[in-house]
Design a binder for these strands. Structure first.
Lengths: 208, 208
DNA sequence: TGTACATCAGTGAACGCGCGTTCACTGATGTAC
DNA sequence: TGTACATCAGTGAACGCGCGTTCACTGATGTAC
C-alpha cells in the first residue's frame, strides 16, 4: 500500500509493488489454470527481480492469501451489483445471486481452487472475513426478506441460505467438470440453478 | 493385475506391486491430506526401490489415475450397499445415497481433491467410466423409480438427479471447510441434506 | 537551503532441496527342446 | 527331468531441473538539524 509514483519514472523503486504482485499472480493463476505458478514469474511480470517479492510477502503462501482476498473482494462486488438490479427480497434476486456465484467460480476455476482447495484450510486468522467480503451475507439478507414477504418469517434464513449456497456451489463444481454438457447437453447451469431454486423455495414456502 | 504370490516368500519379485502401489499411494494421500506425496515414498511403503513403480506406471499421473479409479470403485460399492438397505425408489433411499456421498467425500478430502481437483480435467479417455463405477446411475435409477411412484413419470430423472447430486456435492464442500459448524453449530450436514432433499422433492412432486 | 544519516526497496547471484525419472545392472521365472 | 535362453521385475545410484528462499549489496527517499 505504498503510494503510487508521482511521475512515470519508476526506475529503481516500483512504488506499488505489493499490488502489482497480487495482480501478476492472479493473471498467472488465470493463465496457467493453477496455483502452481513460479514466484519468479510473478516478480518478472511485475518488472522486478526474484527477491523483491519477499520485501512485501513473507513467502509464497502469503502472496496466495492476498490473491484470495482480492478474488473474494471481486466476487463480493459482483454480488452487490447483481443485488441492485433486482427487487429486494425477490426470488429473482436470490436466483441472480446464485448465478453470479456460478459465473464467477466457473469463469475463474483457478480461484475456485484457491477458495476451495486444501491450501485454504491452513492458518487463516479470521475465517469470517472472507465470507463477509464475498457477499454471503448479502444472500442471507435477501433470503430473510423473501421469507418475510411470503409469510415465513419464522424460517431460519441462514439455514435456507446455506442450502442455496450449496446448490450454486455444487452446480458450479459439476459444470466445471463438464458433467452438465455431458448428461444434459440441452441444458445450462444457469437455468438448472434457476429451476432448482424455484423448486426448492416453493417447498420452503409450503413449509415442507 | 499380476497374480498374487503363492507362498509368503516375496523375496525379489513382489508379485502384486501394481495394486500394492495403489494402496500405498491412497494411504499416503490420506495421511498427508494431499496429492503431493513423493513417488519414492509410495515405493518405499510397498517395500520396493524408487525405480520399481515405473515398471507398472508410466509416470506419477498414471498412478494417480489408478488411485482415482480405486476411490470411485469404493464409493460405488458404498452406494450399492446403501441402496440395498432402503426400499427401492423411496425418498429414504435417495437421501441415503446423498448421505453416503457426503460421508465418503468428507471422510476422504484428499480423494475429493483427486476427483474434483484440476488434475482430473486432463487426458481422461473415458469420462463416463468414472461416473459409472461411482454409482451415479444408481441415483438416477432410484430417482426414476420415485418419480414413477408419485405419478410424475414425466419428470426428467436425469435432471433431478443432477440437481440432487449438486446438493450433496455442494454441502460436502461447505462442510469440509467448516462452514456448517461455523454458521449452524447445532446442525450437521447429513440432516441438512435430508431436509433439503425433502423440501426439493416436495417441490418436484407438486410440479413446480 | 544543504548536508548527513537512517531506512527502505530494490538487485543479482547462488544455494539447496525435493523429487520425478532414467540407466545400466541383476536376480527370478517360465518355457522350448 | 534338465538345461539354455528370453523375458520380466526388481535394484541402486545418480541426473537434472524447477523453484522457493537467502544473502550481501546498492540505489533512492525522507528527515533531522
Amino acid at each position: 500500500m505504498t503510494r503510487p509514483r508521482k511521475g512515470p519514472s519508476r526506475s529503481y523503486h516500483h512504488g506499488d509493488l505489493r499490488n502489482a504482485l497480487i495482480i501478476a499472480a492472479a493473471e498467472l493463476i488465470d493463465e496457467r489454470g493453477s496455483v502452481d505458478f513460479a514466484m519468479i514469474d510473478a516478480a518478472r511480470r511485475a518488472g522486478v527481480s526474484s527477491a523483491a517479492p519477499y520485501r512485501h510477502f513473507k513467502d509464497k503462501a502469503a502472496l496466495l492469501d492476498a490473491v484470495l482476498d482480492f478474488a473474494l473482494l471481486v466476487l463480493g462486488r459482483e454480488m452487490e451489483a447483481v443485488t441492485r438490479q433486482h427487487p429486494a427480497g425477490s426470488v429473482a434476486a436470490i436466483v441472480a445471486l446464485g448465478q453470479a456465484y456460478i459465473r464467477f467460480v466457473t469463469g475463474h476455476p483457478q480461484f475456485y481452487d484457491l477458495m476451495w482447495g486444501d491450501r485454504h484450510k491452513r492458518a487463516d486468522q479470521d475465517p469470517e472475513h472472507g465470507l463477509k467480503s464475498s457477499g454471503f451475507y448479502l444472500l442471507v439478507d435477501t433470503v430473510q426478506a423473501w421469507c418475510d414477504s411470503v409469510g415465513r418469517g419464522d424460517e431460519d434464513a441462514l439455514t435456507v441460505s446455506i442450502k442455496l449456497w450449496a446448490m450454486a456451489h455444487g452446480l458450479s463444481g459439476i459444470a466445471m467438470h463438464d458433467h452438465v454438457e455431458r448428461f444434459l447437453p440441452q441444458a445450462d447451469v444457469y437455468s438448472l440453478l434457476e429451476s432448482s431454486t424455484y423448486t426448492f423455495l416453493e417447498g420452503v414456502r409450503r413449509g415442507v
